[in-house]
Design a binder for these strands. Structure first.
Ligand SMILES: NC(=O)c1ccc[n+]([C@@H]2O[C@H](COP(=O)([O-])OP(=O)(O)OC[C@H]3O[C@@H](n4cnc5c(N)ncnc54)[C@H](O)[C@@H]3O)[C@@H](O)[C@H]2O)c1
Ligand SMILES: NC(=O)c1ccc[n+]([C@@H]2O[C@H](COP(=O)([O-])OP(=O)(O)OC[C@H]3O[C@@H](n4cnc5c(N)ncnc54)[C@H](O)[C@@H]3O)[C@@H](O)[C@H]2O)c1
Lengths: 214, 214
DNA sequence: ACCTTCTTGTGATTTTTTTCACAATAATTA
DNA sequence: TAATTATTGTGAAAAAAATCACAAGAAGGT
């Protein structure tokens, strides 16, 4: 698919714009915005161009309009409902995170296999894993977050898909198989750290070499 | 930089290989490995080619050799030491995660500004934020994980860099400025979810259209 | 020993993404 | 009102990434 990377940048722009807005800006130019998320200004303009967002020549972009427009594109003009499966370390941390709600994503419930962890009275209710299918169907949930051990992840995905979930964010460090009609995005924190390790080593070597040559 | 994406795939290969090994495989072909991480087989061979990894024509790759080789490239032949800053929801979840240790990454300590959360006796000690600089320097820590609120993140980064940290994984949803000699990798979970939302909406629309046309 | 089959390794090609570069035009100044 | 300046919007160019395609070589069969 074309322009896959643009989408993630649109979210970044939106983020930065909100911050810029609270800082008192009302309008913004492509180069400020570029700077805020660490790309160059024609990237910003190109991204906007692709999605039909336009500004004013010499006047930049109206922040409010821009955020509105971005939310529309990203499907965030309405609140998105999601569930988490697995009330362990990461699942519980995500459930407590207020950043999702701020961004129009509501976590409606957490599902957990261990009866000791079930707690329907919690702020975000922790329900029995067996009730997941029904809950998804009744509440028309489209988005699921997988925070169970590797060994249970595929099974959870299958149940989610069966119940009608269309998009999944998976924290288990394993590739899950999903049918074509369900999007899966993987977050693998070990991988992210390994990446940091590799590039910091590489950089260090490069800088040492530079120093020798100078 | 060239071949940036290859690196993250190398980590994925390593992951998959470990799994394949526990499943009893001793050798592996490029297409199995490709399948395991969801790319196509020439991508695997190309990645290996770039980093000088070679196998046997018609014999595939020896898994043990391959893992060893990948660890060398990724700088994972020795244990990597890291710290976490911020013992909140996400920081605490990361500290408890055993996946890092399994992958040769040791979390030596967590640093926290709130005295009530400090606990030097914990499995992974939670120390006072003020002791961070000294700890990093004494223990020659190169890798840091930022799990503090947005408002404190830049300051924490600056202190880390000052103390000698060369690579940072940042969970705060904000772009941090770092000097050239320090690598920063951002994990933004809201962004990841928004991406899922966007693409699942897109896919649904596309499928509806297909259905109408058919 | 020779043929067949399978799989690697990589140059060539294609596709995707990013960056350049500049015409178009709106705001500002003189 | 005309000249100047700043900024957008986008085709063209460059760079990066993924895929193709096939020669070369090993393993196994006959
Ligand atoms: N904790 C982290 O920081 C971290 C980091 C990266 C990746 N991960 C990954 O996230 C996943 C969860 O990690 P964790 O540390 O939270 O583990 P955890 O063991 O603390 O939590 C997993 C939870 O899932 C529950 N569970 C198991 N099977 C279930 C099922 N079928 N339905 C519902 N609930 C079920 C368990 O009872 C448990 O409460 C793992 O795959 C792990 O590799 C975790
Ligand atoms: N919890 C999540 O699931 C989640 C998800 C995505 C992103 N994040 C991001 O991760 C960061 C932490 O989130 P959280 O939910 O864990 O928040 P939290 O408030 O639970 O934890 C933050 C911790 O950092 C500590 N702290 C503050 N300033 C500090 C400093 N200068 N030095 C050391 N410690 C300091 C606080 O005392 C607190 O314990 C935030 O930036 C958040 O946006 C969290």
């Amino acid at each position: 698919m074309r322009n896959k990377n643009s989408i993630i940048r649109l979210s970044r722009y939106k983020n930065a714009l909100r911050r810029l807005k609270t800082m008192g800006f009302g309008r913004i130019f492509s180069d400020n915005l570029a700077d805020a998320i660490g790309v160059n200004s024609c990237q910003v303009r190109k991204d906007f161009s692709i999605f039909g967002i336009s500004g004013n020549k010499r006047g930049g972009y109206q922040i409010d309009e821009l955020i509105e427009h971005l939310n529309n594109i990203l499907g965030k003009n309405i609140i998105q409902h999601a569930i988490i499966v697995g009330a362990g370390n990461i699942g519980a941390a995500l459930a407590k995170y207020e950043g999702f709600e701020k961004d129009g994503i509501r976590i409606d419930a957490v599902f957990e296999a261990d009866p000791l962890k079930v707690n329907p009275r919690a702020d975000i209710p922790v329900l029995a894993a067996d009730d997941m299918i029904e809950f998804i169907q009744k509440n028309d949930i489209r988005i699921g977050i997988i925070a169970v051990p590797e060994s249970a992840a595929q099974q959870v995905l299958d149940l989610m898909v069966l119940s009608g979930v269309k998009g999944i964010l998976n924290f288990a460090p394993i590739r899950l198989r999903a049918p074509r009609e369900c999007v899966v995005n993987n977050v693998n924190l070990v991988l992210e750290l390994e990446n940091v390790i590799y590039f910091s080593n590489l950089l260090e070597k490069a800088l040492e070499k530079d120093a020798q040559e100078a």
